[in-house]
Write a protein that binds this DNA or RNA. Structure first.
Length: 345
DNA sequence: GACATTTGACCCAA
DNA sequence: TTGGGTCAAATGTC
């Protein structure tokens, strides 16, 4: 990236991003006019080209990475030698990009039950060091929302933040909205493992002792970037597996159930284990029109906070019930990337 | 003194 | 104009 100036680099990323957004808008618009397959295919290819270009630039493209990933923070802020020269520019850049950075931040939501130790004090430690920087009463909520940012924001330029809100219904449940990935090193020094981002999180245990009477419980995660809520969001659902006494990704659980001869509901196959949030499968587990497989998903808790914040609110893309081929490759990019549009609106 | 929390003010997108 | 998110000075804690 040395041959490309900071401004040129950012301008290039901006231009590509804008082009991508406009193309997506066009595609959305086209969908209201029943486009031909060829037209849609062409738009898919255009979007794919934009995405590849952003990836080549090391920006992360649709991976939903923030502008502060280790790779890009180096690129944006320049080398050590040029640091001083670029300081003023970077200050302005930081200021101007702050809003955009927040919008583009990778976001996911967790519902966490406070354990018996903490009681009503708050959710358990998630392994990261957070500094509270604000608290606010939100309209319609009984309890204030607390805002935390990474303690090492200034030292390591880590822009991860989280919002903690106590549930109105259950005092022991906290909705935690994580925004941005940690780029600090604290993950390597803490004994408690940090919360993995959804695309990496395969297993999540939350205080099993508090799940009495809830043999099948679920933790729902969702991730999105606000500017690209439909294409680049997904929900991964973790269900409590009573036979193994642990949480498993729904996909894993249903795989298991399928092997046991149980019915599989394809809507619930999550791409969470595909290793990338590039692929979208917004599974609306609460939709009454969707037939779920028995009790596996009956008690699923959904946390759609991030998607409701998106500019395209209420855009729930359902995967219609289909006869699932057990060998179908759900991790096929072509399937997940744009399939949601075919079921939207 | 260093660091964390509190809280009113401010900013900005819708 | 409003509400959510952030800032930053004041205050608290170790």
């Amino acid at each position: 990236m040395e041959s490309v100036g900071i401004w040129q680099y950012n301008t290039l990323v901006d231009e590509l991003t804008q082009g991508m957004e406009k193309t997506m808008q066009l595609r959305l618009h086209l969908w209201s006019t029943s486009p031909s397959e060829a037209q849609d295919l062409m738009l898919q290819k255009i979007l794919s080209s934009y995405d590849k270009a952003l990836l080549i630039l090391g920006w992360g493209g649709s991976n939903g990475e923030t502008l502060t990933t280790p790779e890009t923070s180096v690129s944006v802020h320049g080398s050590q030698r040029s640091e001083d020269l670029n300081k003023n520019i970077n200050d302005n850049q930081d200021y101007m990009n702050a809003s955009k950075r927040r919008k583009m931040q990778h976001t996911w939501t967790e519902k966490v039950k406070a354990d018996s130790k903490n009681g009503l004090e708050g959710p358990t430690d998630d392994g990261y060091s957070w500094r509270k920087y604000g608290q606010k009463y939100i309209l319609g909520a009984k309890y204030p929302r607390s805002y935390y940012r990474c303690t090492y924001r200034l030292v390591q330029n880590c822009w991860a933040t989280k919002q903690v809100q106590r549930s109105d219904d259950d005092l022991t449940v906290f909705d935690i909205i994580y925004k941005g990935k940690h780029t600090c090193n604290q993950c390597c020094t803490n004994t408690v493992p940090p919360p993995a981002s959804p695309e990496k999180q395969k297993l999540k245990l939350i205080d099993g002792q508090n799940l009495q009477g809830q043999q099948k419980q679920a933790l729902s995660l969702s991730a999105s970037t606000e500017e690209m809520p439909a294409l680049f969001s997904f929900q991964s659902t973790f269900a409590f597996h009573d036979e193994e006494n642990q949480y498993l990704p729904i996909s894993t659980l249903l795989d298991y159930k399928h092997q046991q001869g149980d019915t599989i509901s394809p809507q619930l196959i999550s791409p969470a284990t595909s290793g990338s949030n590039y692929f979208t499968a917004a599974t609306n587990v609460r939709n009454p029109n969707v037939q779920h497989s028995e009790a596996d998903t009956a008690d699923i808790i959904s946390a759609p906070a991030s998607t409701t914040n998106s500019p395209i609110q209420g855009m729930e893309f359902l995967i219609d019930p289909i006869n699932l081929d057990p060998n179908f490759a759900f991790n096929m990019p072509e399937f997940f990337t744009y399939s949601n549009f075919e079921h939207g609106q």
